[in-house]
Write a protein that binds this DNA or RNA. Sequence first.
RNA 1: GCCCGAAUGGCGGAAUUGGCAGACGCGACGGUCUCAAAAACCGUUAGGGAAACCUGUGUGGGUUCGAGUCCCACUUCGGGCACCA
Length: 864
Amino acid sequence: MVVELPRRDRKARHVADEKIIPAYDAEAIELKWQKVWEQSETFKARDDSDRPKKYVLEMFPYPSGDLHMGHARNYTIGDAMARQARMRGYEVLHPMGFDAFGLPAENAAIKNKTQAGAWTYKNMDQAIATMKRMGFSYDYDRLVRTCDPDYYKWGQWAFLKMWEKGLAYRATSPVNWCPSCNTVLANEQVVDGKCWRCGSVPEKRELSQWYLKITDYAQELLDDLDQLTGWPENVKAQQRNWIGRSEGAEIDFALAAEDGVTPTDRLITVFTTRADTLYGTTFFLLPPESALAAELVAGTDHEAAYLELKKSVEQVSSVDRQGSEREKHGVFTGRYVINPLTGKPLPIWVADYILLDYGTGAVMGVPCGDQRDFDFARKYGLDIPPIIAEKDDPLYEQLKDQQDMVVTNVDWDHAMVAEGYLIQSGPFTGMRGGKHSEAVDAIIDYLGERGVGRKTVQFRLRDWLISRQRYWGNPIPMIHCDCCGDVPVPYEDLPVMLPEDLDLGAGETLAEYAPFYETTCPKCGKPAKRITDTMDTFTCSSWYFLRYCDPHNTELPFSKESVDHWMAVDNYIGGIEHAILHLLYSRFWTKVMRDLGMIDLDEPFANLLCQGMVKDANGDTMSKSKGNVVPPSSVIGPYGADTMRLAILFIAPSEKDFNWDEEVVAGANRFIKRAWRTVWGLAQSADFAAELDAKALDADAGELFRRMHEMGIKCTADFDRYQFNTAISAVMELVNDASAYLNKVADEKRDGALCATVARAIVAMLSPICPHWGEELYHAALGLDGSVYDEPWPTFSEELAKANTVEIAVQVKGKLRARIQVPADASKDELEAAGKEAVASWIEGKDVKKVIVVPGRLVNIVAI
RNA sequence: GCCCGAAUGGCGGAAUUGGCAGACGCGACGGUCUCAAAAACCGUUAGGGAAACCUGUGUGGGUUCGAGUCCCACUUCGGGCACCA
């Protein structure tokens, strides 16, 4: 219960009975200020403000139920940033929304025989209620829900723009089909060989699917990582890994005629990073899925063995197929290619360790230089000629001048080291070999002159498969016409509305729902069929941060002007699990929008903070199935939102995982109450009208004043580097000091101006973290009007933070021997003299070689 | 195999540029108040030792007057990629 003090002048309050300190009633205070903020639109972001902008953004949630601790942590970090930025003088854009399409809603609807939309909207309402109860400072006028037609319309619009530019296309190829989710998955959504959502092992299916051409941007997505200095290194490393750039060469091998030796005009090209090992090639490899392989063996004695291998590979799951432990299998096709350097025929084998969709889908086998090829050669009795050796290898001595192949097999149990000097390699013998070596360049040049090889770059990144065979998503705005093929829906017909009246419970799907798919061709007018696939939900989340800049635009997804003003996102906060998926797609989408002339921006997120996970007390991840979930409401109830926010930020640095600990919450609550009493105590001795005269302060007051500046500087710097745990500890120290001052110095001897200043500083510094607490004290204890969030962040001075006397360490040969109190402005000579005196017994009779004096820190006397 | 991180008291963690290791908090112990408890407040709290002192930031070396911090070699743990040619 908050006791309203009688309004009287500040001096009068100074002499008021100190015992009137209202109890800290978190719930009453929090509900009160949440209502005030909402009514007075405190957190509305104004487009026309004169202040510099700051865009603080947390990754929006999928509304699968109420918010959990991970959300609470994510949004508390963002809210502290946003509120502090506002006090630092920025116009802050701090929006929230929902990634509202997706499979859980559809599955829930099927199970409960309801509508996916109804389930989703109910959950969103619940999540918003919790956000408001946590006191997050969102501009709810800019709320974005991706399942609203006025949002998803613009996702369709973007798809059509990409279609026009050739960045969206349809192709038939083997894709990952999740048998449990009944839909295909993007490469990025197969994690550890399993579906990212349900953990089932996807099957490979040959299907006609829709793609976005993210590979066109592979190089730029890689290069621009270097300009993201505000991103954690590990996230950038993960993206680099995923993009997987590899420099190498394409080399053309001529297919031999059926006699095995005569070259034909037909070329088969391989990709290799090790052109330097070309002389060591003893066989040639194709993957089981290769159409060429099937053709080569068709009708021959080798066909049966080939078909058996192909069948066995199809039966092995992608999980089992990956991993280098797996034994390799292969069959000979009966045909040969010709080595372009040596003219020697090489047998073509089909092997199950060759991938169809990397490089050119054909590989030269070099058993000397590659462990996989070595294993394969051993198993099938193929030659392993040495073509590379280090100088300490006896083979090097034996073969260093040997250009022709004389040793054709070795009895090693492992492939040769990756680097060394070429041997038995024609004119290239003696050159340094290895990745990016002179031999690689020399051989590629040589091949280039003859037109049978060239430098090239390969990426691991595949195009983004975006079509999903599910209902609750954004429909792909395309129509298939038997005469005209795939025809885009005209812009004026957007959005293609997702029908809301499917009977999901009865198993109805979009593909079977005639009112949706029956249409006419926009080109020829004949009856045609709508595409019934929907887009991956990651398309919706790839640009929502742009929509927040201009959420009510009905002409365009966003105006260039608004994006120019608010973007880039200054602080983006979210889970590390999006290091590849969401962040890569968003970067791609932004670059596409730039190339469409919609925006002038290369990268959407200037600074990224990936918060750690919230685990249970034992360090296990919280999950419904384990029954160890701590819902935010269970903390807000007994302690209040401010205590929870404080505990979350104090328990560990933001990017680290932490284990939920009730004791830390209790400790945070203890502190917030202590700080409350201290501010009230200061306020009751405060003279808010008086000018603070630093020179007139007595020793105790002077020290508190100095500490305020010291801790204020530390707290401010810690906010700047998003280290909330230490920012809080700085405020704790100041509260401890202020409390000690109140305990020590009698009421009538306290400095009124100092009490006012310190109280104000404490309230300001803690307000971004405990906003209701701060706002209440700002009004009730400090008697100020307006909002603490319109209060400028206090300024602190390095000069005033300096102490008159400092304690410095005195070392002898680097070992601490004494501590002395000296005036802060003592000269080096004075420090040296004082130091020698303090450790006289240690240096007695010794020869002082050297004295190092670091003012304010230490004196180190080197005496032997 | 390749690429990133990390390792500090009983616990979470601090030390921003090479300068007093352990801030701040939790827990524990002791005390004040109380018939008693809770709450609150005040102390102590890296380890060893009676003390002077000694030892201490994963391990082993090194650079330096001085190393948690820099260099070399390793160990363990966490994360990412992976039959990618």
